[in-house]
Design a binder for these strands. Structure first.
Lengths: 343, 343
DNA sequence: CTGTTAGCGCGTTCAA
DNA sequence: TTGAACGCGCTAACAG
């Protein structure tokens, strides 16, 4: 391996001068510079990052904690994070945690061990205290999900408002018997969307029916969505609309309706969330809330680098805009009746 | 930051002893050991990996090059890689290359710079010479795609055989006018599947019709699959079966058939590839080749670690088993005619 | 503008 | 079984 010492010797200068040349950290004479440059090219020298990082006590690596890479929602965020870091010369170390607190803290230990300079958390550490212990010592930003009681930097959409948007849209369509397929997980997004569901009902004086609240699996699986929708639709007084908190769940619900001989949206309106799943591959296209996933990742990365470079402790909490996209799985009750009567 | 020196001082021993204790690299007295252990716990000491890696000239980090994290096929492989490395104490550095040679070599430079000890390549570096230059100096394994002219370690399925399996199945069903939706990319998997398509035709004395070979976008997009299928199905003499080299493409083809008023599989048989996309969400469920994605990633990681630990240069080339899964998008020609006549 | 010197935290001689 | 001393490759003081 060629080292800075080899370069210095060959160029007839000191290692300090080569170092200055490499980093632009001090003045270097024009001809000295070109001499060094020539030697570097000839020797094909590359600085040893292991040594440099050690010396500078920084790794230029950031940690990404993600429950699950195969979930397209996370994959898209991840994409935004990774690309942004790449553009800025950072490397991304990825850990999949499967929502396992032990794995989460083991991954976060990479901060303590100095293998990474900062971290982006893409889902909730169940234990708030461990988050706190790391976030107080290292730059950490929470992406998409976050610990509501903390005021650490975070980037997400306004899940409560998005939930309200969906519900008000459904109610505006004339629906009164509205169910929701939420999830067993304890993510803040899940809580806020459920809260919005309840509040929207209340603000419209619609009585909350506990049987209309179904909890699908933690990872929003298609099959659990389908199963829950089947239950909901089998109720003595079934809902006329179902607010699903993910697209996969909505896809499952559409499938359930289909198998029960129900037509969407004529017999049942269904909404999704995220708009990263295959919402527009087959009819009926899913009405959903679009999240700016790539941007969510990008902004998180940008925010983290900001924290990395300046030690100001102004804690940003960024909300990115979501958008209700009305497609083919929702219809007004009035219109529905009309449609039904024409058959 | 507490260092090994602090621990040594507090425990009243030398740093060498602490180091030996930490690494089990030499004898340490029983009571000395317990004394050190106590201090480590009390001081909450963690070895600085920056220093350790520098000293050992290894990073315990491996590089993963992936064209695109949002493609579920890659995401599943990635999952297998990351989890396996995690279990073995390695960290995974991820680079998305977007099939851009410049980005690929920039990522691979992390090897030269010593930020990573080895690499897993998940898609083809267009330039073979750069692959060669890295693979000859560092442990590198190719996963899923590979450079056929090289004999470096790699893990994949037997794409040629898989293609043959699909084609023989289709031909066995009575199909003669079989089209393929391949891709514009230059991946080895694409080449081999196309080769299998042609060879299967030849071995059954079916004339190859160039108009039956369609090239979809590099990334197997749903829309390009749909567009190509629309063209194919609009031919004067349309195919009775379409062999798509990815599930997304097959989904697109099904959608195209649907919009043209054709019924799958009554009017047209369609096959996919990979079985990671949404092949079983909506009817008709896709007949496809299942790839063991997670296992592909896992085996690649295992193989790489093997190279990392022993410097034997036996180059493994591993083929993992694939499986033809017959579902609802394929039917025999005879059966089809029968079905058709009953309408 | 340039060189000398010191040291980051750790692992590894080698001598005791 | 233990400790003193050295150095990995690089950067940052400081002196010239």
């Amino acid at each position: 391996m060629t080292t800075i010492k080899d370069v210095a010797r060959e160029a007839g200068v000191s290692v300090a001068t080569v170092s200055r040349f490499l980093n632009g950290s001090g003045p270097v004479g024009a001809d000295t510079a070109s001499k060094i440059e020539a030697v570097i090219l000839r020797l094909n020298y590359t600085p040893n990052l292991l040594a440099r990082n050690f010396r500078r006590n920084e790794s230029h690596v950031i940690l990404i904690l993600c429950p699950n890479v195969t979930n397209p929602y996370y994959a898209h965020i991840l994409s935004g994070i990774v690309e942004t870091f790449y553009e800025h010369g950072y490397s991304a170390l990825i850990y999949t945690t499967a929502d396992n607190p032990k794995r989460e803290s083991e991954a976060l230990d990479m901060l303590t061990k100095r293998r990474a300079d900062g971290a982006i958390l893409m889902a909730g550490t169940t234990d708030e205290s461990v988050l706190l212990s790391f976030a107080s010592r290292f730059p950490v930003v929470q992406c998409s999900e976050y610990e509501p009681s903390s005021d650490f930097p975070r980037v997400s959409i306004d899940n409560y408002q998005a939930g309200l948007d969906v519900m008000r849209f459904l109610i505006g369509l004339g629906h009164r018997r509205i169910a929701t397929i939420s999830s067993e997980n304890h993510y803040i997004s899940t809580k806020l969307r459920l809260q919005a569901y309840q509040d929207a009902l209340r603000e419209n004086s619609i009585m909350l029916d506990e049987r209309y609240i179904a909890l699908a699996s933690k990872d929003y699986s298609f099959h659990s969505g389908k199963a829950k929708a089947t239950e909901l639709l089998g109720l003595a007084q079934p809902p006329t609309a179902i607010f699903c908190i993910s697209d996969t769940l909505a896809l499952g619900a559409v499938s359930a309706a289909d198998e029960m001989g129900l037509q969407v949206p004529r017999d049942i309106s269904i909404t999704g969330f995220d708009d990263v799943e295959h919402t527009t591959m087959f009819h009926p296209f899913i009405t959903t809330i679009a999240q700016p996933c790539y941007e969510l990742g990008k902004r998180s990365a940008l925010l983290l680098m900001e924290k990395l470079n300046q030690t100001t402790s102004n804690h940003h909490q960024i909300f990115l805009a979501h958008q209700l996209i009305v497609r083919e799985t929702t219809a007004g009750l009035g219109h529905l009746d009309q449609t039904a009567s024409t058959i």
